[in-house]
Amino acid sequence: MSASDRAAPAIPDDDPTRTLTIAGPDGPATTWISLAGGTYAMLITGEQTNGRYCLIDMRIPDGGGPPPHRHDFEEMFTLLEGEIEFTFRGEKRTVRAGSTVNIPANAPHNFRNTSGAPARMLCMCTPAGQDEYFLRVGDRIAGADAPPPRLTDDELAQRRQRAADLAPEYRSELL
């Protein structure tokens, strides 16, 4: 039996309780956080997509990026500006603006801006949850140009410990 011979499942009725979402980094509903040396805007949250995905605008200064990690959800990055060095299963690749990178679930990876200039990318995670994790681990800031908080060494250690403690709840593992 071919795929064309099978009856397609019915498309569910429209859910009028879900609304159109229009998001931008300057939108009044956008939450900004400082995390992993970068400034992240929560553009589309899991709450808005019924948990299907989230979309995060990431502004990564030179030297910024998360530690090596892995998680059981798909993660896709589209570089809007600059370039980022991605490490995927131990192999480094430099990716430039205009490129899209998909990280398969469970694969060890991280990224770092080693370009000497700022970079910006969109990150989509499916299903959602990374947005909630980032909000619980990062520090809220006023906007894209707001400086990161000045943290003491003890406060930085507390942030790293909180990220490690919460990672399993969000299906992630810091390596």
Rank of each mutant, 00 (worst) to 15 (best):
M1L: 09
D5T: 14
A7H: 07
P9L: 07
A10K: 03
D15S: 02
R18E: 07
R18K: 12
T21H: 12
A23Q: 05
G24Q: 08
G27Y: 07
P28L: 01
A29G: 10
T30E: 00
T31E: 09
T31S: 05
W32Y: 13
L35N: 12
A36K: 00
T39S: 06
T39A: 01
Y40C: 00
I44R: 01
I44Y: 05
I44D: 03
Q48R: 00
Q48F: 12
G51H: 02
R52G: 04
R52T: 11
Y53D: 02
L55I: 11
L55Q: 05
M58Y: 03
P61Y: 05
G64I: 04
G65Q: 07
P66D: 07
P68I: 11
E74R: 02
F77S: 06
T78M: 10
L79F: 13
L80Y: 06
E85N: 13
E85V: 14
E85P: 01
T87G: 04
F88K: 11
E91P: 04
K92Y: 06
R93M: 13
R93N: 14
V95H: 06
R96K: 14
S99Y: 14
T100R: 03
H109Q: 13
F111H: 13
N113S: 03
N113K: 05
T114A: 09
A117F: 10
A117K: 15
R120Y: 07
L122F: 14
L122T: 08
M124K: 01
T126I: 04
Q130I: 10
F134H: 09
F134T: 01
R136T: 01
R136H: 09
R140I: 09
I141R: 03
A142F: 08
G143F: 07
D145M: 02
A146L: 03
P148C: 01
R150M: 08
L151D: 04
D154N: 06
E155Y: 07
L156R: 15
A157M: 12
Q161K: 15
L166K: 12
P168Q: 12
E169Y: 10
Y170A: 06
R171H: 15
R171M: 10
E173G: 05
L174R: 11
